[in-house]
Computed example of a mutant assay.
Amino acid sequence: MAFEGSTLINWPAFVQARNELGAGFGRILGYFREDGVKSVAAIEAAMRALNAAAMVIPAHTLKGEARQFGAEPLADLAEAIETIARDCLEMQDTPDEALEHIVRLRPLFVETLTLLEREANPVAVRKPVAGGGFGRRAVPTGFGGE
């Protein structure tokens, strides 16, 4: 399943979260970045170790935090991983079925986070125009303005 730009985020949910969190929004988004990176790494490590139990909490955490920001496809993918891991625990089985989901997890997380951060702070994400652009002084490209 491929996700395209605007389909990665439920924008009304994102706006609602931004409005509800107010001035703390940027800080909470930063926590999502930190926790997400850790959760994705933990899920991948658990898969390498075939340890379903070690997948449950990071997948659950990622699911909840993604939903908070309207990142529904990411939340759904994390939920699928969590469900498979919980089922494997009940059946005392290895989480082989989760592999195809986990392979998609990191790229989806990165793409989703990029969109969230771009929308949260659109000015900071923009790159300077080569040559300075209209009305802007050219930025030196090397040491000493060379």
Rank of each mutant, 00 (worst) to 15 (best):
A2I: 15
F3N: 10
G5M: 09
S6Y: 10
S6V: 08
L8D: 03
W11V: 13
W11N: 11
P12Q: 12
P12M: 08
A13D: 12
A13P: 02
A13W: 07
F14H: 05
A17M: 14
N19W: 01
G22D: 08
A23D: 07
G24Y: 01
R27K: 11
Y31F: 13
Y31W: 07
F32V: 04
F32S: 01
D35R: 01
G36M: 04
G36V: 02
G36Y: 04
G36H: 01
G36I: 03
V37P: 00
V37Q: 06
K38R: 14
S39G: 05
A41W: 00
A42P: 01
E44S: 06
A45W: 10
A45F: 08
A46C: 10
M47E: 11
R48A: 15
R48S: 14
A49L: 10
L50Y: 06
L50W: 06
N51L: 09
N51Y: 08
A52N: 03
A53D: 15
M55L: 14
V56F: 04
V56Q: 05
P58A: 08
A59R: 01
H60L: 13
T61K: 03
T61H: 04
T61V: 08
L62Y: 01
L62A: 08
K63C: 10
G64V: 01
E65V: 10
E65P: 00
E65S: 15
E65T: 13
R67P: 07
Q68C: 07
Q68H: 06
P73F: 00
L74P: 02
A78N: 07
E79N: 12
E79S: 09
A80T: 14
E82H: 09
T83G: 07
T83K: 14
A85T: 09
A85W: 03
C88L: 05
L89W: 01
L89G: 15
E90S: 15
M91Q: 14
M91T: 05
Q92D: 12
P95Y: 06
A98Y: 03
L99T: 09
L99H: 02
R104W: 01
R104E: 14
L105Q: 03
R106E: 07
R106D: 03
R106T: 13
L108S: 12
E111G: 15
L113G: 05
L116I: 11
L116S: 08
E117G: 12
E117F: 02
E119L: 10
A120W: 12
N121A: 15
A124Q: 11
R126C: 11
K127N: 12
V129G: 04
V129N: 04
A130D: 09
A130Y: 09
G131E: 06
G131A: 01
G131T: 02
G132F: 02
G133D: 11
F134Q: 13
F134A: 11
R136Y: 07
R137G: 10
R137N: 13
A138L: 09
T141A: 13
F143P: 04
G145M: 01
